[in-house]
Simulated scan of single mutants.
Amino acid sequence: MDENELFPSSRARHAPRILILYGSLRKRSYSRFAAEEAGRILTSLGAEVRFFHPNDLPLPDSVSDEHPKVQELRELVMWSEGMVWCSPERHGAMTAIMKAQIDWIPLSLGSVRPTQGKTLAVMQVCGGSQSFNAVNQLRILGRWMRLLTIPNQSSVPRAWDEFDQDGRMKPSAYYNRIVDVMEELVKFTLLTRDSHAYLVNRYSERVESHAELSARVNQSSAT
């Protein structure tokens, strides 16, 4: 293991780059409101924030991945060092809109892994009493995408009563929790982004790469 991967000689000085995804297309979308509130908090904490708006994103596998919205999403994921996923809970699960965005993000693009080793915070909004079904599912997806999903999370019950007419969140313990989650996301991003090469260095992949290299050398020698 290269020690420089674990202890880089210099640390990045730019603002943490955070991408926010939300899971609803409604005009008055509480998951978007919560995501926007998270974005304001992240900006105040010194992060650079970008949103992906899922309007016009096609269903996975229904079109080529050259579709402009798919390309936009993938470029934003590549740009980011951390992400926030915020979904409504619908029928006890995350929405199809939320899942479609994640399904369009590949585990690898050539030799590049767009998500592996980056940080993730998960949030949900509920129409009724508080639930954690959506955030639990998002955690499973985060693990599958090899993201570093932070311990803290946010679930906002009765979301229709937590935001004013302008879509701003009212002062409450639920708002305070979102602040906690965003603070933790920024901290984890700052702690891990400089060691990204170390975090994504896997034994099984080194073995596979060595085998491929040996095969190419042997083939070259044979010719």
Rank of each mutant, 00 (worst) to 15 (best):
R113G: 01
V77T: 14
Q101G: 10
Q153T: 13
H67Y: 00
V200G: 00
P54E: 09
R26P: 03
R32I: 03
S129K: 06
S9Y: 10
P171F: 10
K118M: 12
S172R: 02
P106L: 01
R143P: 00
A215D: 08
S195P: 04
L21V: 12
N55A: 13
D180S: 07
Y175Q: 15
E3Q: 14
Q71M: 11
A100F: 01
S220K: 10
W160P: 03
P60A: 15
N176C: 06
S10I: 13
P106H: 08
R168C: 05
M145D: 07
P157D: 07
E184Y: 01
L73E: 14
P106A: 02
T119W: 02
A15G: 04
S10A: 10
Y198W: 13
M94Q: 05
I41K: 00
W160E: 09
Y22A: 03
P157R: 00
P114M: 05
L185D: 03
N55V: 14
S44N: 13
I105C: 09
Q116L: 06
E89R: 00
S62A: 12
P68A: 05
S31A: 10
H67T: 01
D161C: 12
V77C: 06
H67D: 00
L73A: 14
Q165C: 12
K118V: 06
I150L: 01
Y175R: 14
P157Y: 02
Y22C: 05
V122G: 04
E75A: 15
W85D: 05
L42G: 03
W144P: 02
E75N: 15
V49N: 00
S131Q: 09
V156L: 03
P151E: 12
Y198T: 14
W104F: 04
N136S: 08
W85F: 13
E212T: 11
P58E: 15
P58I: 15
V112P: 00
A93Q: 01
L109V: 13
W104C: 08
I102N: 11
H67C: 00
L109H: 04
E36Q: 15
S131V: 07
N133H: 14
K170A: 01
R139T: 13
E72W: 08
W104M: 14
S129E: 12
S10P: 03
V179G: 03
I105W: 05
L76A: 08
V179C: 09
V207E: 15
W144D: 11
E205L: 13
L73T: 08
G167F: 10
W79R: 09
A47L: 08
N176H: 07
N176F: 07
T149V: 13
T43C: 02
L141C: 10
R13A: 07
V84D: 05
S9D: 13
L120V: 11
H210I: 14
S9E: 15
D2T: 13
E5D: 10
A173F: 11
Y30F: 10
V77E: 03
G39I: 05
D56L: 15
R158V: 11
V179N: 02
L57V: 14
L42P: 04
L190S: 06
D65M: 04
C86E: 11
P68D: 07
M145F: 12
F52D: 15
I102S: 13
D103F: 04
L6R: 14
M169I: 01
I178S: 08
D103T: 04
R28N: 15
K69F: 03
G117T: 08
R90K: 04
L109Q: 04
